[in-house]
Write a protein that binds this DNA or RNA. Structure first.
Length: 351
DNA sequence: GACCCGTGGTA
DNA sequence: TTACCAAGGGT
């Protein structure tokens, strides 16, 4: 531990945030917040869910499209599942979209359209875990909750020069983060630590020279900042293989399927296909002269690499195999597809 | 704690 | 090209 010197860490970070806060579409900046403005809890919740394991750059356009189409939690709750899943397509981690809808319908149907303000009540809602509950309570309701995300973990590990590997070190890092959380402006403080981690105290090549915490930072003093936080070694990704079948009717309609809610790409639209395993068997949705595409789809998921062989055929008029759906030429939007399925379509289109 | 769950940017 | 990484949550 460090000694008991007067370290006004939260004061330093808030002063830095007042000058350097990024202008984000879901954020009420420090000046407006000083004037008494608070961000809309709906927008805070939506942005925080989108930002789970996802970069600000990737979220921006999705956030604009969602809020333009569904400006309130009631509007989102009333939306059909397929529209929401389609709008989420490409952003990844599709369980977030399914839980987003569940949560919106709970808030709209049982809570009068108002998000609860307490961490514990928020924590019970679908898709809201420890981090997101703390973030909404702090940012939307200015409660002194401690957020612990990847940024805060990194900043705390470096500030205190903690070498214990993640994720085992989480409780210790949370304890250190809680000790620094102020009663004054906790919402701005939470965003300040995360902004610091995102822009200065970055995973690689941290900009220690311009960091507002460079003097009290123990890792900066030890020269260990760039190697923290330590992480437990991760398992290598195996490669799986599979087949997908693109069948188009003469009028331009496609044979597709809605994937089951559980599991990979759950609830999303996709092409009929085989299992994805080391050596899958072909599994065409109907008998036909299936043609091979010259190139395979390559895609990497969280825990495996995938190589897909693409087969194409003409879908006979009047045929709709059991368990599949016909998507008309004018209803079909490639942007409704998860990326791996869109890659197969792009490959077909390029042939 | 272990495992599952996407994607695009970056070195 | 490969591997790592990001405002995590659910089971």
């Amino acid at each position: 531990m460090r000694d008991g010197k007067d370290l006004d860490v939260s004061g330093v970070l808030l002063a830095w945030y007042d000058r350097h806060a990024r202008d984000l579409p879901w954020r009420v900046g420090p000046a407006d917040r000083a004037a008494g403005m608070c961000p809309d809890p709906y927008r805070v919740w939506l942005s925080e869910v989108m930002l789970q394991q996802t970069t600000v750059a990737a979220v921006r356009d999705y956030f604009h499209r969602f809020t333009a189409r569904w400006p309130t939690v009631e509007a989102l709750a009333a939306a059909p599942d397929e529209q929401v899943m389609g709008e989420w397509a490409g952003l990844g981690y599709y369980a977030r979209a399914r839980n987003l809808l569940k949560c919106a319908r709970t808030v709209a149907g049982e809570m009068g359209g108002r998000f609860p303000a307490s961490h514990d009540a928020l924590r019970g809602l679908p898709g809201i875990g420890p981090y997101t509950a703390a973030a909404i309570a702090a940012i939307a309701f200015d409660q002194p909750e401690t957020v612990l995300d990847g940024n805060v973990e990194r900043v705390m590990a470096r500030f205190h020069d903690i070498h214990d590997p993640l994720p085992a070190a989480k409780p210790l890092l949370k304890e250190r983060a809680a000790a620094l959380t102020p009663m004054r402006r906790p919402g701005d403080y939470a965003q300040a630590v995360m902004d610091l981690g995102a822009t200065i105290c970055t995973p690689r090549s941290p900009a220690c020279g311009i960091c507002p915490l460079r003097d009290p930072c123990l890792a900066r003093a030890s020269g260990t900042a760039a190697e923290l936080p330590k992480k437990s070694p991760k398992k290598p990704k195996p490669t799986r293989h599979g087949y997908v079948y693109l069948a188009r009717r003469g009028d331009g309609a496609w044979l597709m399927e809605r994937r089951p809610d559980k599991g990979l790409l759950g609830g999303m639209l996709g092409w009929p296909g085989s299992d994805w395993t080391a050596a899958p068997a072909e599994a065409p949705p109907f008998g036909a002269e299936w043609q091979s595409l010259g190139e395979d789809v390559r895609h990497t998921f969280t825990h495996f690499h995938l190589v897909l062989k693409v087969r194409t055929a003409v879908l006979p008029d009047g045929l709709q195999p059991e368990g599949f759906k016909i998507v008309g030429k004018h209803e079909f939007r490639p942007s409704d597809l998860p990326t791996v399925m869109r890659k197969a379509y792009d490959l077909w289109r390029g042939q």
